[in-house]
Amino acid sequence: MRAFDAMGTRFECVLVAFSRAMQPFEPVAIAEEIELLIKDWHARLSVFDETSCVSVINRIAADTPVTIDRELLALIRRCLHAARMTDGAFDISLGSLMQAHGFRPTPAETAPARFGWRSVRLDEHASTIRFTQPGIRLDFGGVAKGFALDLARNELRAQGLVSGLLHGGTSSVVGIGLSPDGRPWRVRATPDDPSAPVVDLTDLAMSVSAPTGRMANGKGHIMDGRSASPSSGCLAACVVGPSAEVCEVWSTTLVVEPALLDALPPGFQASIRRDDLWSSSGQPVPFDPSPSICSEVHEHVRV
């Protein structure tokens, strides 16, 4: 087991069994690689670090196109597709709203706070991003952990992991294979709620979002760009499926807009809690053991 802090939370990975013979300490080295991988993306996506890729984009993309790498370009492309699909219920351009409600550091510059995913433009050929108006600030808080866990899952599968569990802050979880006792990795969506869904995560990911997960001034941390305010669509949303990134995108989305419960991509299952009642939709399909399948899974967001 390895635990480390990244992306404002605690990550843990339990690596139980590999399909190939390992050299002494090779599992330790694999866990070290996972920690470096996630911390690297933390450093790139952090809005708390002024030199991170995202902070540089937020500072200058309204003035000039910013060249970004293919991996970040692909992540932003998928997020913009999700925004289009959900008509803005999922939106990575709400950084200024997060700042206004005390969840993010306030920038030194005094550009008016604006948001809206339609103001974010990608040039796929030039590999650049720009904003069509000043004041836009990207924030990957609603997708980063899931994205990082998918990358970690891919790396672990490539190294031959056949049994293991990863989570970021317990709200994003990936189960690989079976647990050491031969049974599925069994996880309850919200531990303090006996009526919450209990999920068997065999080659599946899960994400849980709730407005009360983080609070400031009595308001939750999930923003609704459509109303320019903290969302209160439902009390909690849990999504299970083959990609942690897609699960997190949709658990965030459903907290903002529970009516999209039936619009879930194929292969994913969602449960949302309104008052004391949980309601569900969809059927989860496990991810393929092949590491390359992850990019195809992401395409579900684009359907």
Binding site: Q23, A29, E33, Q159
Partner: peptide
């Protein structure tokens, strides 16, 4: 605190 080991998905390259 690091093992100084590089994992090798292809054991022939360890």
């Amino acid at each position: 605190k690091t093992s100084w080991v590089s994992p090798a998905s292809d054991p022939a390259r360890y």
